[in-house]
């Protein structure tokens, strides 16, 4: 019988926190120098979802950010654009227009971001609104309360429903790992979301501390790897929040490279949700080119 097998998520793969932390510290001993550093930094830049998610966002601010997304630092040639901008649904139209022809994607948070405390109906409307205004990607949040309650079926159905509402837009599922308490829960949420149809799994909204951490991201990368071997399907990863330095960006890249391999080393399968990371990467790239340590004052803060 060719029937879809939904696993029992109570029995998800066990994670040992200390082992995860040891593995992470091992990644962090990698020394990335010279040409591999330049290549890595450009890769990091190309994987950024440049993000503004504030109540005080204005169309003007979004437009400026979009320009920065497509022209990170024109003084330095040969730079990629960032992967996407990430905004609230009401700003999707503005961003879409500003980015026309640049290749930079527009991602929209939805589903009563960031808390997710609303009804299924509202969340679906929220999603459809963003998609109709041109969002290429939807960043949804899961109902953490239901998840922590053990109501996995609810969360599964929620993700599946939003996925359907996305149409062709790619769906990123945010767990808000800072609220999930254990790495076992992160692993469970990852398995659940991938089975429910997530194109990407994402750590955080950026509104809760801790946001993305390397241990949490490693647990999710391992889940993606195991899901790939089980099903043949590739799923993307997006750590978001708290990653602000080029060094940290490279450390994530090392982790990605040594966990999922070369096929994931592209912004189709990996993103950084970040706002200040781009400028630090640019500063390091200019430093690599000139050999001179840089100042923030020389890089536009959009």
């Amino acid at each position: 019988m060719a029937q879809l097998q939904i696993p029992d998520f109570r029995k998800s793969t066990i994670v040992d926190q200390v082992g995860i932390e040891e593995r992470v510290s091992r990644f962090n001993t990698r020394s990335i120098k010279k040409e591999s550093k330049v290549k890595g930094l450009k890769l990091v830049l190309s994987m950024i979802d440049l993000t503004t998610l504030e109540g005080k966002d204005t169309e003007g601010k979004v437009k400026q950010m979009c320009y920065k997304a497509a022209h990170p630092h024109d003084a330095l040639s040969g730079l990629p654009t960032v992967a996407a901008v990430c905004v609230y649904p009401t700003m999707v139209g503005t961003a879409k227009q500003a980015l026309a022809g640049t290749g930079v994607k527009v991602a929209s948070v939805s589903t009563a971001f960031p808390s997710g405390q609303s009804t299924r109906q509202v969340k679906l409307l929220d999603t459809k609104f963003a998609v109709e205004h041109g969002a290429d990607e939807i960043d949804m949040v899961i109902s953490r309360g239901e998840f922590l309650k053990g109501n996995y079926a609810f969360v599964f159905d929620e993700i599946a429903a939003i996925k359907e509402a996305c149409g062709t837009a790619r769906l990123k599922v945010i767990f808000e790992t800072g609220e999930l308490s254990t790495l076992d829960n992160v692993r469970r949420a990852s398995e659940l979301a991938m089975h429910a149809g997530a194109d990407f799994i994402k750590t955080s909204t950026g509104k809760i501390s801790p946001a993305a951490t390397m241990p949490v991201t490693l647990v999710m990368l391992e889940a993606i790897r195991d899901f790939y071997y089980a099903t043949g399907k590739m799923v993307g990863m997006k750590p978001a929040g708290g990653i602000s330095t080029a060094k940290s960006g490279l450390q994530y890249l090392v982790m990605l490279h040594e966990t999922l391999g070369a096929d994931w080393l592209t912004n189709k399968w990996f993103r950084f949700g970040a706002s200040s990371l781009a400028n630090d990467v640019l500063m390091q790239l200019v430093k690599e080119k000139t050999g001179v340590y840089q100042s923030k004052e020389y890089f536009s803060a959009d």
Partner: peptide, 18 residues
């Protein structure tokens, strides 16, 4: 799943000598 191709760790990003 035996039909899945193994992950590719041999190409991509090489670390320069350090």
């Amino acid at each position: 799943n035996t039909s899945v191709k193994p992950l590719n760790f041999t190409s991509g990003w090489e670390y320069a000598p350090a």
